[in-house]
Amino acid sequence: MFSLGLMIFLFVAFTSFKNHFSGLRETKEMLTHTQTLLEQEKIKSSIAYYELENMRQNVAMVLPKSTISKDYPVRMLASVSRDSLKKPLEGFSSTAAFNNAKKQFRDKNYKKSNALFADIIRTYKYSIHLPEAYFLLVEGLYQVSDYEKCLKELNVMIDQFPENELTGFGMIRMGQIFEKRERLDEAKSIYTSVLHSFENKELKKQAQFLLDKIDL
């Protein structure tokens, strides 16, 4: 009984004086103070970031208006998003260039149209207008009687767009050039090739007609 009483007394004494001698209270106060300082620093940095964000938004608000000026660094900053700066690019699209060249071809300005089509072929290698540009260039060269160049371009056309109907029309022109040069066998072989390679009825009919004409 005495032992139990002593143990309880020691336990109560231990718990009462433990904090007094361990320095836990001081450590706790120090930790609380440090934590308070840390939180104060967090407030300071968050408010500073808030002010920075506020300023950034104010700058963004006036920036688009200032891009009208020719100040290069400012324009560069906003260049990715300015609609007005994108507009001049429209003039450089292959469609615009192709339409312009086609207009010259329709007006029978073949020399000018040939130069423009050659330029389109060189500049826009992946344009959807490329087969048509080649064909109109071949046709234009034929019209100005530049047969050498015409044959050269036709060869490229046959290589690159063998299944395109326009290549068939081009091949008819090729046959006619050979006929003019008295190379009838080669012309016949081309007409036969057109006859067997393309589905277009008119194209087949014409190739057959020209073939029959040579045979006569």
Binding site: L24, T32, I47
Partner: peptide
């Protein structure tokens, strides 16, 4: 007992203001 003391220590305050003695413009966290 030790566990309980630690929890109390961490959550001693709910709000902190900056500057500590502010009157007009005050930051609260």
């Amino acid at each position: 007992h030790v566990e309980a003391e630690w929890v109390t220590l961490l959550n001693q305050a709910a709000l902190i203001q900056y500057p500590a003695d502010c009157v007009e413009v005050c930051g609260y966290k």
